[in-house]
Amino acid sequence: MRKVIGFLLIASFAFFIVSLVARDLWVDDPSQVRTLGQAAIGQTIPQSGAANTVTAIVVQFRGLDTLGEVTVLFLSALGVALLSGEFAGRGLSELFADDGGFILHYGTRLVLPLIALVGAYIVAHGHLSPGGGFPGGVLIATAVFAVLMTNAQQRLSTRLMAVIEGLAGLAFVGLGTLGLLGDKFSFLANVLPKGQLGYLFSAGIIPLIYAAVGTKVAAELSTLVTSLTGSDRDGGEDHGASSIPADTQGGAR
């Protein structure tokens, strides 16, 4: 019954969409970028000094969106920590209770610095090449994740992560406020010298903001993983083990 109603609902919705916009969407590929995209491409170098136009948009032209985006991540790390009660000894901790064997255990330690290094590289070159604070931060967090997964005894201090997270967030807001102090009087304005196109030290505050974002994302994702797996060093004592089965059965009945 539920499936039939669902299907009818979706079918009518599909009909609605297709009948309204099909003619507009199924046309030939455009050969021209839309107005705002064109403005962004044109303004990237003079206004921001970055080579990557997406970065210029994300960090500078629409910097407030990015501040909001970082806030959403912060929120979800906060929410997961609040709701999980750090799942100490519960949650997914069973899955993380073994070392994953000799090869994984030591192999992870071997590649760990490399992963972190690549992450840092991607964060630092966000204004020049694809990447930036978000993917770079995620990469750094995967290093943390790998260590937690392959080392049963490994614990991470969420307190330390919270400090890093908070400092990085304050740095972002602080860099934004820098713009309010200068003569431009505009939040998130790019007040630092723009440097020369294509150099690491260019594009004013963009690399700095991306560094803050990268740090923040890495710390937040590490907090998320730590809270969900109960690997918090500051968490409570172990409780009776209970976890969600890896494959939740049912549903397909």
Binding site: L67, T71, F74, R159, A162, G166, G169, L170, V173
Partner: peptide, 16 residues
Amino acid sequence: LIALPLATAFLIVLIG
């Protein structure tokens, strides 16, 4: 209005 609540929230988590 945006910056202060955000900064305060970050600071609250920082101080803990």
